[in-house]
């Protein structure tokens, strides 16, 4: 059975990746996560190029996007995504340490669907991840062309 990769997590910090996956594991969503370690890799995945050239499945149901990324930054990834006809409908949740109004305003202007500041407290963090995963991957109906849910 082909793995359904419905969540694209763009995160360079492996500890954050691990904590995030821990949080998603509570809804058994951990296996559906594809991790891109920087902006370039994320764009390659979405555009099916580079090492993702042969990818045949659909678009992810949600992109969890960190802002502080090596190579191409999070806001730039967001801009490219939301200006691409095929990808602009893909929901994006900015998941960041930044509390800055500037980042938040810029993110919403570029078309992000949500803006979540990672809480320092572990419980709060895990709760937040759980809620995001549950909402976007389970409750929300993804736009056409997305990876289908398991039935």
């Amino acid at each position: 059975m082909a793995e359904l990769k419905r969540i694209l997590l763009v995160e360079d910090d492996p500890h954050d990746v691990e904590l995030t996956l821990t949080g998603l594991a509570e809804y058994n969503l951990a296996n559906e996560v594809v991790v891109a370690r920087d902006g370039e890799e994320a764009l390659d995945f979405l555009h099916r190029r580079g090492k993702f050239a042969g990818r045949t499945d659909g678009n992810p149901s949600v992109v969890l996007l960190d802002l502080k990324l090596p190579k191409v930054g999070g806001l730039e990834v967001l801009r490219q995504l939301k200006t691409d006809e095929k990808l602009k409908m893909v929901p994006v949740v900015i998941l960041t340490s930044s509390h800055e109004d500037r980042d938040m305003v810029e993110g919403y202007k570029l078309g992000t669907n949500a803006y979540v500041v990672k809480p320092v407290d572990f419980h709060q963090f895990v709760d937040a991840i759980k809620h995001i995963g549950a909402f976007w991957a389970v409750i929300n109906e993804p736009p056409p062309g997305s990876v289908q849910k398991r039935r």
Binding site: D13, S98, V126
Partner: peptide, 21 residues
């Protein structure tokens, strides 16, 4: 201070998180 706060938060979160685990 922005950058320090920002960058300090990640390892702190990790400490707190993994401490919890």
């Amino acid at each position: 201070s922005y950058s320090v706060s920002h960058d300090l938060r990640a390892p702190l979160r990790h400490m707190a998180g993994f401490m919890e685990l």
